[in-house]
Write a protein that binds this DNA or RNA. Structure first.
Lengths: 361, 361
DNA sequence: TTGAAAGCGCTACCAA
DNA sequence: TTGGTAGCGCTTTCAA
C-alpha cells in the first residue's frame, strides 16, 4: 500500500518499501523471541501464559521487544493452538431496530466483561440465509452462538437449523435462543404471551371494547405469541377482534406506518384502540394516523409492546409492555457462559405500562 | 455437555464419552478426506479451493463425506494457512444509539455483500479502552478496521491510537474513520460543520434570533464541529449564543433530557429555539420540556441533527439536518475494501429539513 | 488429477 | 526457569 497524498506529520514512521504491493510483515512471536534473545516458548509464557515462572529479567526483555515490534498476538493462531477462541457470535435480524440493538447492547456488555469479542451477523433475508449464516459462524468456533429474533418457526429449514445448532453444541459450543421456548437449547424466554394478555385485560379495564391489531407475519414467533396472548386476553371478556381489523405487515416502523395508513384509509369504523405487536410498529402507526388527520389518543388509542426508549418521546406517550431488553442480552450471554448440561430456560417477565395513548374511556 | 431433554433422531453420531465434560470432536478436513478416501489436499481443493482440477467422482465423494460429517471449515485455521481472514472489525460507541446502529446497518450490509464477517466492539468508556480494543481487534487480523464515533480528539492516547492504526495499515490492513477528517487514513467525512451552518441560516431565515445550544463534550469531534458550524452560521447575522444558554451533556437521549430539564428549570428567558447537536439529544430535550409543562414548537422551538427515523415520529416533527447514515456505513465499507494507495476522504453532504418543531416566526 | 509434505503463528508438553 | 519440539486444521507448492 502506498501512502501518497498524505503529508503525514504524525508519529507514524515512513513506509519501508517502495514496492506498492508489499506490506510490512506483522511481528510474530518468533520475532519477539529473537529480538529478546529468548526462546519462543519463553516469549509465549510472558506474553500470553502465566508470567509466573519466567525470570524477571527475561520478562522485561520480552516485554520490551514486544513493544518495540508492536507485536499483537495472532488470535487465529492462538485459537488454533489452544483449541478455543474467545469469540461469541450474535445473530440478529436488523441492527437498526431498537429491539435488537438494545439486546445487542446487553450482549456486548456482558461479553466484554467476560473478555469475549462479539461477532455480529444480520439476517435480513430468508431463513435459508439464516442457516447459511449459522454455518459460517460455526466456522469461527465461537464459544457461544446467540440467536435472536430468528424466524425459525414453521420453515423447511427449521430442522436443518436445529441440527446445525445441535452439531455445534455437541462439539462443545453453547447455543442460546432468545424468545424461542420450544427448542432444546438454552433459552431466554420473554413472556410475550402473558404480557400481551395482561395488556388486553388492562385495556378492557380502561373501558375499551373494540380493537384493531397490527401484527407481523405469523412465522415470527414473537409477533404470533403477542397476538395470541392479546386475543386470548380479550376472549376472557368475550371480545373478539374482527378479521378486517387485523393487519399483517412488516415487523418494522415502516410496516407499522403502512398498517396505520391502511386502517385510516379503510376507516376506523367503531374501532377504539389499535394495538401493535411492537412499539416500533405502534409508533409508525401513530405517525400514519397523524398524517391521515387523526389524533392518536383522542380519535384512536394506541398501544405497543417492548417499551423501548422512544415510547415516552412520542405524543401521546405510548402505552406498552415493558421488556427489559438490555437485561435480556445480559442474560443471554450469562446463559451462554454457564456451561450447564441441561438446557435451561430463563423466563423474563413483562409488565404493562399504561400511558396517555390509551386514556380511560 | 450433556444433551438431556432432546430425543435426537438426527444423523448425528452418538456421544463417544460418558464424561459430561467431553465434547464430540468437530470433523476436520482430515476426517473428511479419510471418509471420502482421498488425500487431504484433494478434499481441500474440493471444499475451499478451485473445484476445477478434481475428478468429478472425487468431488462427489468429498462433498458427500463433508455433508455426512457436518464439516465446517475452521476459519482460524484457514486464516492462518492463507495468511488472511475474511473479517472486518467495526468499532462504535454504543449499539443502541440510532446513529451508530444505522451506520452499523450499512456496514454489515456492505460486508455481507463482500462475503465478510463483521466483528463489532463497543467503546463506551475511555479512550484508553478504545486503544485496547483496537489492539485486540488487530489481533484478529481483520481486513479492515472501521472506527466510528471515536473520541480520538485531544486525548493523550490519540498518538498511541494513530500509531496502532498505522502499524496495522503498514501490515496491509485497511483503516477507515467515520467523521474524523484530519487523520492520515481513509475517511468518510460527514459535513457536520456545513450542515450546522446551513441550519443556522435556515433558522434565522425563519425569524429566530435567540438560541440555546445543547451539545456534548468538546472532545467529541462530531459535537464540536456541529456546534462550531452553528455558531459560525449565526455569526453571519451577528447573532451570538449566550454562554449561559449553552448546555454540555452526555451525547445521548438521557443527556438531552437532562439538558432540557436544566434549561426549563433555569428559565427560557427570551430563548426562542434550542438546537441540539443530535436528534437523539433533541428528542430527549423535547420530552424534558413537555415534562416541564412547555409545549415544544409553541413555547420553544427545537432542532436536531442526523434526521434519524424517529425525528418524524415525535410531535411536533423535528427540524433536523439529514445525514444518510446507512450510506455512511456502506461508504465506509467500500472505502475499506478499495485497496487504494492514497488515503481518500469521501465527503458526505448533509441537508437541512425544516419541520414543525421550528415554525416560522 | 492426485498426494506428500512443508509451513502458517502459536501453545504446551517434556526434558534439561 | 528454560528451550526443543510436536502438534492445532488448513493451504499450497512440488513431484509424481
Amino acid at each position: 500500500m502506498h501512502n501518497l497524498g498524505m503529508e503525514d506529520g504524525s508519529a507514524a514512521p515512513p513506509r519501508r518499501h517502495g514496492d506498492a504491493a508489499s506490506a510490512e510483515r506483522q511481528a510474530t512471536l518468533h520475532d519477539v523471541a529473537r529480538t529478546a534473545g529468548v526462546s519462543q516458548a519463553t516469549a509465549s509464557r510472558v506474553l500470553n501464559g502465566s508470567t509466573r515462572n519466567v525470570r524477571q529479567e527475561n520478562v522485561a526483555r520480552v516485554l520490551a521487544a514486544a513493544a518495540e515490534l508492536n507485536y499483537t498476538p495472532h488470535l487465529s493462531a492462538q485459537a488454533i493452538a489452544r483449541g478455543a477462541t474467545n469469540t461469541a457470535a450474535l445473530v440478529v435480524s436488523g441492527v437498526d431496530d431498537p429491539y435488537f440493538s438494545s439486546i445487542a447492547g446487553g450482549v456486548t456488555q456482558a461479553a466484554e466483561a467476560a473478555g469475549l469479542i462479539v461477532t455480529m451477523a444480520v439476517v435480513d433475508r430468508s431463513p435459508e440465509r439464516e442457516l447459511q449464516i449459522v454455518r459460517t459462524l460455526r466456522g469461527m468456533r465461537p464459544r457461544a452462538i446467540i440467536l435472536t429474533g430468528s424466524r425459525i418457526d414453521g420453515t423447511d429449514t427449521r430442522d436443518a437449523l436445529v441440527e446445525e445448532l445441535d452439531a455445534y453444541r455437541r462439539a462443545g459450543g453453547s447455543v442460546v435462543l432468545v424468545s424461542q421456548y420450544d427448542l432444546p437449547f438454552h433459552t431466554v424466554s420473554i413472556d410475550n404471551y402473558g404480557g400481551a394478555r395482561q395488556l388486553a385485560r388492562a385495556l378492557v379495564g380502561l373501558g375499551y371494547r373494540r380493537f384493531a391489531v397490527v401484527r407481523a407475519h405469523a412465522a415470527l414467533r414473537t409477533s404470533r405469541d403477542r397476538c395470541e396472548g392479546f386475543v386470548d386476553g380479550l376472549r376472557e371478556f368475550n371480545i373478539d377482534v374482527e378479521e378486517r381489523f387485523v393487519f399483517e405487515s412488516e415487523f418494522s416502523r415502516r410496516g407499522g406506518y403502512a398498517a396505520g395508513r391502511e386502517l385510516a384509509r379503510q376507516g376506523l369504523g367503531d374501532t377504539e384502540l389499535v394495538v401493535a405487536v411492537s412499539d416500533v410498529m405502534a409508533i409508525g402507526a401513530m405517525t400514519a394516523f397523524r398524517d391521515a388527520g387523526l389524533v392518536p389518543g383522542r380519535d384512536i388509542a394506541v398501544a405497543g409492546f417492548d417499551d423501548i426508549g422512544p415510547a415516552v418521546d412520542v405524543v401521546p406517550e405510548l402505552t406498552s409492555v415493558t421488556v427489559p431488553l438490555r437485561q435480556v442480552g445480559l442474560c443471554a450471554m450469562e446463559l451462554a457462559l454457564s456451561d450447564d448440561d441441561v438446557s435451561r430456560v430463563v423466563p423474563i417477565s413483562t409488565n404493562v405500562v399504561l400511558r396517555d395513548s390509551t386514556p380511560r374511556r
